[in-house]
């Protein structure tokens, strides 16, 4: 069978079919979650889900852009179409996520655009519109190339920072800046690990060099930002300020299971990150051509990235439990 249908939607079996699948799934999932959580205390979950979908679509768009510029290996002949579609879907999700959050805040009579999260969201909205609209409207895209490239690569850290700030908004207790540094390190480490994955999956001659830099960045962020800063905050502030609030609130399991699990499972992450850096620093071959090594690095990097994302989800649960506990 050459083509596929998902929930009645035509999914062509071409380069972009995974993209269509991701966008369709994310759209329906976001709709269901928004429907289930609207007007409830956990209405933020729908907004967060749309944000995560836009992040994944941005990774597709940036990777396809890097393929077009021959920075990474071409995955298919139809990369331009994939890049264009990913950009349009990404912008649609950014608009959806932003206006949904705005709608929720307005209907709850909450002040809008007061937080850095809201303002950064608006900046991302404008930047993503500037990426897509002129590129679709202009016939001669060569003039836009440099600005398009800079803005495209800048959007990735902006989106990660936006996710981190969203998490930070729910943090209770002091010192909040340490928590921000801790979660920002996690966000940028996830970005660096994604970068390694892209380089390893689509290898070029200079891919090993760039993957090596990304691995050093991820190791430093995980050790210094996540482990040392997060550990210091956990030992000096969390136990005395946040834990009692969560334990007295409606979701004590957020500490008993989520926080206890998070603090111990995290300890595996620095070792895995350093092992990835060492494999890339001292490889058996001076390139990424060996498919066995690339597969091994893909597996290890996916493991590290999954752990970072798990830490984010657990962090969101803990922050939310702290916020809910402080209201009771």
């Amino acid at each position: 069978m050459d083509n596929r249908y998902l929930l009645g939607i035509f999914i062509p079996k071409e380069a972009g079919h995974r993209l269509e699948l991701l966008a369709s799934l994310a759209f329906f999932l976001a709709l269901i979650v928004i429907g289930l959580t609207y007007n409830k205390s956990n209405a933020w979950v729908g907004h967060a889900l749309a944000g995560i979908a836009s992040l994944l679509l941005l990774i597709f768009a940036v990777s396809a852009g890097a393929m077009l510029a021959r920075r990474i290996q071409l995955a298919s002949r139809d990369v331009f179409s994939m890049h264009k579609k990913a950009g349009i879907y990404f912008t649609s999700f950014v608009f959806g996520s932003f206006f949904y959050a705005l709608w929720v805040e307005l209907s709850n009579n909450e002040p809008i655009m007061r937080s850095v999260h809201g303002r950064l969201g608006l900046a991302i909205l404008i930047a993503s519109a500037l990426q897509v609209i002129p590129s679709l409207a202009s016939k001669d895209r060569t003039r836009l190339k440099a600005a398009h490239k800079i803005l495209g690569y800048s959007l990735a850290p902006m989106i990660f920072l936006e996710a981190v700030w969203g998490l930070y908004n729910g943090v209770v207790g002091e010192p909040k800046n340490l928590v921000l540094a801790h979660s920002a390190s996690g966000g940028f480490a996830a970005l660096a690990l994604t970068w390694i994955l892209v380089e390893v999956l689509y290898p070029t001659k200079r891919g090993l060099y760039r993957a090596r830099i990304a691995s050093y960045v991820s190791s430093v962020l995980i050790i210094a930002g996540c482990w040392i800063v997060g550990g210091y905050n956990y030992l000096t502030s969390y136990g005395s300020h946040v834990k009692p609030i969560i334990m007295a609130g409606p979701t004590p399991w957020a500490h008993e299971v989520a926080m206890e699990g998070k603090e111990h499972i995290f300890i595996f992450l620095p070792v895995i990150a350093v092992a990835i850096s060492l494999i890339l620093r001292f490889p058996d071959r001076d390139d990424l051509i060996d498919s066995m090594s690339r597969r091994a690095l893909t597996i290890m990097t996916t493991l590290a990235l999954s752990l970072v994302l798990m830490m984010f989800i657990l962090g969101a649960i803990i922050s939310n439990a702290g916020s809910r506990g402080s209201l009771t």
Partner: peptide, 24 residues
Amino acid sequence: LLGWSIALVLVTLAMTFGIFALYV
């Protein structure tokens, strides 16, 4: 390297599930 990377994933997953299971 491939075999040890798979072993690393399996050990990490087993420990992760074990830790959560005990806390639950």
